[in-house]
Design a protein around this nucleic acid. Structure first.
Lengths: 194, 194, 194, 194
DNA sequence: AAATAAACGAGACGGTACGTCCCGTCTTAGA
DNA sequence: TCTAAGACGGGACGTACCGTCTCGTTTATTT
């Protein structure tokens, strides 16, 4: 016998409105700058409805990320056969997003959120890695002999994205040339190692 | 000719007490968690004495970093002739610091502070790079022919430290093996490329 | 012709449970202190079942009073022939109820409810007057010549009960001696005035 | 050696502004109806400045009463030699204040506040008694032989004011005739008792 | 017996006010 | 004039209830 409770179910309309308002407010004012009341007002929702389902900003943002409202999850490295080109273009997407003042601020806000919440941190990593697609692309390259068989593909991803993250964290711009250099030298080692 | 002003001069005792209290409070409660009042109380100082000399948390922390109260600045890569070993040991120092729960929390708090303040972000980058010593070590290796002449040493530093930063940001531990793998593969190209 | 509707009728069980829970919660936490949700929970009832039949706290309490759940309505002045004794004993019942800490708190809570609701205020007055029985007793005494023909019996009731009410409102205890003095002096005129 | 603390002293300006705003807001919206934030806004003050010095509404109102902002403390029964007239006029002041819709609401709000706070209840009693002046007037009458030597003057005050309070609590109007009757019959007994 | 529909327990909803915490500024008295 | 102390105006926090609305179930009447 199944035991289910009566009463209204959670309002999907409210949930969407809250997450979308959160994404807008977060993008506009940053992690510290946006307020729960502001989200509630913009979503046309009572503050308690937010606290009923989320414990605070970090959880709220984690769900935004999960729904792809903060970082487009459809983005994914392509596979043209030229691994260096594919990886370079993927990194450029991230670097370009971090190039504008707003984009850099958003990325730093995402990092700020990640520092205070484990789940968000993991999710952000996944999002930045194209939901694992970057690693997949590198594995394909490895299978195709473009990368050394013993190349640590998971760590390659950390190296490349980490460099951009670190540069954003230290408020340095990462332009196309830097991305190209990063990619070329990081992937060269793998070919050379064969 | 020097123009003297009357009255007491800035209290060095208060300055030290404030920075040390800041370092302790920041380490204990994180960037968002510590309060100016808490620092003032622990330092046995009036709140105004803090605001008279610093504009707020970011400046306070920047000075802590400059004084080496948050991140030991005496640390510097050694030069044994074996660049891979030297670099690996340097990265291990960072990775080990980020290994304990407290160390990882501190590093994440530092990142959080960096996201909201440009000057602090730049300082943190410098601190993590051993005040440029990592790049120096790589340049020496390059001069000694251990790294390819065209190796982008500045970016190599970003790659290696960035990887650790990204892993800490995404709440992954970085153990000795990961550090060794990161170092080996990143520097390999330099030998092979010759 | 009667027009029937289908469906269940109002649940008497729920009605009783709600009123009894209201009386307990009100007595325990006072007018401002008790909550509709608390009543619903204690009564094992949905909140809407309360709002379906009552508009809020005042109506709920008015019904409690009408059912004698807050103030025993069976109490009534007796008629021994000695009007002073009968009235004094009646007042003593009220004064004694207001003597204990809990009793005084209850009486003050009743007053608090009366301040915000006219119907409840009128009901409370009636309850305190023994549903008019005090005035009846005085009228009998008047008819028997124990009180002056022109004695304002309705106001005598207000005077005597009002004194106790005022003393309770100002957190003064009203002991047997005070009650005796109040009664003796208030009724004295009636004999003397003949 | 005297031990005194440094730092700013309490702002008298803020204190006055808060009490005056409280009196206005309370009179306008009643005990339940006015809000601390509303008082803070009207007083041009931070909410914390209110909570720093008062624990909540009851304390705030108690101080208002003490400063005569809710109930004019200068009012006092006069002494024309005719005690019945003097007392009647005093009661009329209270009854008239309670006659208008606003006045009755204010008086009931005062009672509501009294029910939840002992100090306020005592203060209200004092205020209604003209800060003891009514009792003084009755004592003078007693000394002059207008009242019986054994008349319980303190209780006479409770009887008379209590009657008005009770009638206000039960939402009955108390007009000039009622006041006159109350006074005449209550004071008559004292003369008659001689 | 089936259909109808109201009352029920439960609880999510949009809101308001609460009392707390901390911000950065201002004020005081002492050294 | 710098200091410790701390009051100030302000803003956001997270909580508690309000009164309304919406579920899915139960139950009494009508068809």
């Amino acid at each position: 016998m199944s035991r289910h409770r009566s009463g209204p179910v959670r309002s999907e309309h409210a949930r969407r409105a809250i997450l979308e308002a959160t994404a807008r407010q977060f993008s506009a004012h940053g992690y510290d700058g946006f307020t729960i009341q502001g989200v509630a007002d913009e979503a046309g929702v009572g503050k308690q409805t937010i606290y009923r389902w989320w414990s605070g900003k970090p959880e709220l943002l984690t769900d935004c990320l999960l729904e792809g409202l903060l970082w487009d999850k459809r983005m994914s490295p392509s596979n043209t056969g030229d691994v260096e080109k594919d990886v370079r273009e993927w990194l450029m997407l991230i670097a370009q997003a971090a190039s504008s003042t707003e984009g850099a601020a958003l990325l730093r806000s995402l990092m700020s959120a990640a520092t205070s919440n484990e789940v968000f941190g993991e999710r952000l990593h996944q999002a930045l890695s194209g939901e694992g697609a970057l690693q997949n692309r590198l594995e394909i390259a490895q299978r195709d002999g473009q990368l050394a068989a013993d190349a640590p593909v998971a760590l390659l991803s950390d190296l490349l994205i980490g460099a951009i993250i670190l540069r954003t964290l230290s408020w340095q711009d990462t332009d196309a040339e830097v991305v190209a250099t990063l990619t070329r030298f990081t992937l060269k080692v793998q070919r050379a190692g064969q």
